[in-house]
């Protein structure tokens, strides 16, 4: 709440420059944004009415469980976009996040299979994840490389290291922690679903409930203003990449629990992660990424696949609809930013 207020202030100087055009544009933007949300709501309403079993508690918990890994990754991506600014070409983006998760999963599963316990293996996975994040930070902040290119290079580094470690094979894993994540449950909600709920609560509290989160928005929204106000922009931006690496490591433990193994091909998740982070902006009034918006869009993506399957609509459609929605949201976002983009 307070974060959005600050962002409004940070962006205010742009708007005064273009007041004349922006009133009409803002109204149009509002209409389009509400239209997009209405489209989301309509799809959900359709599922509620026509998809058999869609609203059953069992099914909804299943979807939360299925969304856990994507959710944790999307939070990492969202934090990078918040801190680096949401300009699609020059802003913050972490293309390495899914590959990083694959590498962490490989490290975790390999160490487990070598007989190291959960504690050491999880610690190692987190260390690797954050190290990859730090590498991103070094490339983006230290060397000043465009995030799009820097993280693309790191993607290849992480994917290459995963292949070297696993030789492109499946590494089976089992441990008490994994067993708990797979079969544990509390209040009728499975451990994996709880993992998403707890992680969401923590990250939303940090980003939207603390002064730190507020400053992060300031850094991403208007780096010059943030610097003038005495904030260390490089520190905040670096922090987001390391946080993103941490999220990748947490997601890797969840993914190994769900697949009982580390498997090649984690990189495939990248598009869904990007989709979730981008779609999430539509839930904010100023089209800024928010953790809550990301959570909603992650659940939406999960419900979309679920609803289509329950309706017995070919799974091939899911990709199409997802792609169309991304296009719609990105189009709205660029439209809304039209005035800012011209500067």
């Amino acid at each position: 709440m307070s974060a959005t207020t600050l962002h409004t202030e940070a962006g205010a100087s742009d708007e005064t420059r273009t007041t004349g055009k922006s009133a009409g544009r803002r109204f149009a933007t509002l209409v389009v944004r509400l239209g997009a949300i209405a489209a989301f709501a309509a799809i959900m309403a359709y599922f509620v009415v026509f998809a058999p079993g869609f609203t059953s508690t069992f099914n909804l918990i299943n979807v939360v469980e299925q969304s856990a890994i994507l959710g944790v990754l999307a939070y990492g991506m969202t934090s990078v976009i918040i801190g680096g600014g949401s300009d699609v070409t020059e802003g913050g983006i972490d293309l390495s996040i899914a590959a990083n998760m694959g590498l962490c999963a490989a490290v975790y599963a390999t160490l487990l299979s070598m007989g190291y316990g959960d504690f050491l293996s999880v610690l190692a996975a987190i260390a690797v994840g954050m190290a990859v994040g730090a590498l991103n930070a070094l490339a983006v902040v230290g060397l000043g490389i465009l995030p799009l290119l820097a993280t693309l290079a790191v993607l290849n580094v992480a994917a290459g290291m995963e292949l070297t470690l696993t030789q492109n094979t499946v590494v089976g894993a089992s441990s008490p922690l994994l067993g708990f994540l797979v079969s544990g449950s509390f209040l009728g909600i499975s451990a994996l679903a709880w993992a998403l709920i707890v992680f969401s609560a923590i990250i939303i509290a940090i980003i939207h409930g603390t002064a730190f989160g507020l400053r992060l928005y300031a850094v991403g929204g208007h780096p010059e203003a943030a610097r003038a106000a005495g904030l260390s922009v490089p520190f905040y931006v670096s922090f987001t990449y390391v946080l993103s690496g941490f999220c990748a490591a947490v997601a890797s433990v969840l993914t190994v629990s769900r697949l009982s193994a580390s498997t090649p091909g984690s990189g495939e998740l990248l598009l869904s992660v990007l989709a979730a982070a981008l779609l999430g902006t539509v839930f904010s009034r100023r089209f800024v990424p928010t953790m809550g918006g990301t959570l909603l869009s992650v659940l939406f993506i999960g419900l979309l696949a679920n609803g289509f399957q329950l309706l017995n609509v070919s799974s091939y459609w899911v990709n199409g609809v997802q792609g169309a929605l991304i296009l719609l949201v990105v189009a709205i976002t660029s439209f809304a930013r039209g005035s800012e983009g011209s500067r």
């Binding site: 069992f58 299943n62 299925q66 697949l259 091909g265 679920n306 399957q309 329950l310």
Partner: peptide
């Protein structure tokens, strides 16, 4: 599942519920 393990598991999970 488009050769994605995660997706196949999610599909099987929903399928069991169906």
């Amino acid at each position: 599942a488009g050769r994605k393990d995660q997706q196949q598991i999610a599909q099987l999970q929903t399928l069991i519920a169906q």
